[in-house]
Simulated scan of single mutants.
Amino acid sequence: MMYPVLNDWFDNAFNDFFDHRAMNRMNATAPAVNVKEDEKSYTMEVAVPGIKKEFCRVDLNADGDLELAIENKLEHHEEEKGEKKEHYLRREFAYGNYQQAYTLPDDVDKDHISAKVENGILYITLPKMIEEKKDQVRKINVA
């Protein structure tokens, strides 16, 4: 069942990511990204299995966009054991880097963005700004 997209930001910012035609253009190392929203915040969930938090970088750039970089710094070398070197007969593990900038919605409180890595997922919490109630009912004293 398809659900209508209620948030223009989500539709615009992530449309290319989820477009199956764009998948052919994307690097195979691009992680899967989920975005959810509640009344207080947006939460990005980025799949980073096996990646330590030290290798995840989340920044705001000069344009106010969220920049996400994941660097896999595993060493790729043959280990020496005695006089013989080990070598792989077959090696399929691929380790790459990923970097992407995301345009944030206007209602994100950019001063309170937080991120954590837990169980192979990078969680980026984008809190919404608290709107002041403009139509508050109050009594005004007449002097």
Rank of each mutant, 00 (worst) to 15 (best):
G64A: 09
M26R: 10
Y95F: 15
A32C: 08
C56P: 01
V48W: 04
D65I: 04
D63L: 11
E39L: 10
T43Y: 01
L68H: 00
E37N: 04
L104F: 03
E80G: 08
Q99S: 12
D107Y: 00
V35Y: 04
K53G: 10
E92P: 01
E78S: 11
E75R: 04
P31C: 08
G64H: 07
E54P: 01
D65A: 06
N34Q: 14
N97K: 09
R57K: 10
C56E: 02
V58A: 02
D65K: 01
Q99C: 06
D59H: 07
E45A: 12
N24V: 11
E83K: 09
D63W: 05
P49H: 10
V48R: 02
M44Y: 01
D63Q: 13
D59P: 03
K53P: 06
K110R: 12
E79D: 14
L66G: 00
Y88A: 14
G50A: 08
E37V: 07
K81M: 11
T29V: 11
T103G: 05
D107Q: 05
A62K: 13
V58E: 03
E80D: 11
H77I: 10
R91D: 15
E37H: 01
Q100W: 06
K84F: 11
Y98F: 14
L68I: 04
E86P: 02
A94E: 15
A69P: 03
R91G: 10
A28P: 05
P31L: 07
D109A: 09
F93D: 15
D106C: 00
V33Y: 00
V48Y: 01
K81Y: 11
E83M: 07
A47D: 10
R25F: 13
H77Q: 14
S41H: 13
A62S: 13
L89P: 01
L68S: 02
C56D: 04
E79I: 00
A47H: 02
I51N: 02
E67L: 06
R57Y: 09
E67S: 09
F93E: 15
E79A: 06
D109S: 06
A32G: 13
E39N: 12
Y88S: 15
K84Q: 13
V46I: 15
H87C: 03
N34E: 15
E71R: 07
V108A: 04
D109Y: 03
E71H: 07
N72P: 02
L68V: 03
V46R: 01
K52R: 10
L104Y: 01
E83P: 00
K73D: 12
V35C: 06
G96L: 06
T43F: 02
N24D: 15
L66I: 08
K40S: 15
K85V: 10
N27F: 06
A30K: 02
M44Q: 00
P49Y: 08
E67C: 09
E54G: 07
G96K: 01
G82D: 10
F93N: 13
D109N: 13
T43C: 03
A32Q: 15
N34G: 12
M26G: 03
G96T: 04
F55M: 14
L89V: 07
E37W: 00
A94W: 09
K36T: 12
E86Q: 12
A47V: 09
N61C: 05
N61V: 05
F55Y: 13
H76K: 08
K73Q: 11
T29H: 14
N34Y: 10
L66N: 01
D65T: 02
E67K: 07
A28Q: 14
E39A: 14
D107V: 02
